[in-house]
Amino acid sequence: MKVSSTCKSSKVALLSLLVFFGFAVTTPVKEAASATPAAKTKAKTEAAAPAQEKGTAVAPKLDPTDPNSVIYLDTSGKPAGIGDPNKPPSMAFQAGRGWHPQALSAAGLPRDRYGLIDWAKIVREKLVSPKFSLNPQDEEMPPLQMNVLIAAKGDFVDDVIYPHEMHTYWLKCEVCHPGIFVPAAGQNNMSMTGIVQGNWCGRCHGKVAFPLTDCKRCHSSPKKAASKAK
């Protein structure tokens, strides 16, 4: 009697185990099965889009007579005009000729790994070389060759090397000093949370300059303390 009862109880336990393992195993599989097709199609469309972009970047088929050509699209992707310079200007022209991302991608400009156009690289490789001033009498001022090491506040994040060179290529000193940054090393109590909210570097980066997506683009100088701690 005793033997049979323990036998029975172990059977019950085994059965319940089997049932609930089955339950536990099948539900995630079902969820996964329903999740994967969507993910696959998404991946496919994502894979298809860059391929298309690349295709246009390598061999841009810009037909000036075609009003649907990317160079005639406005910022919303609609045809901005009819492609005929003799006809009256389009709405986009009147709105100040908004630049259109698709035309930029067709121009094959260098991009970083996040798909963002790398304007600094464009300048360094002299793909564009804007004049210093519209006034021919203005004397050209060479960019300031001065890198500033800004220590990251956290112990584990690499320090920032701030290049004056690229910034003074585009801007004059008064744009940043002393309004945004006090011109003295260590006197600006910068923080990443503040920058994200649009203070300090965030006054431009994320708005008119490259966004904060690529941390390593600024946080590039390894921290010695952190490397020791590893």
Partner: peptide, 20 residues
């Protein structure tokens, strides 16, 4: 009663562990 308790234990505890 003990037997049912053991069964109940598996019913409750096993899915809780496997779902994480």
């Amino acid at each position: 009663a003990k037997r049912y308790f053991i069964a109940l234990f598996f019913v409750l505890a096993v899915p809780a562990v496997s779902f994480g």
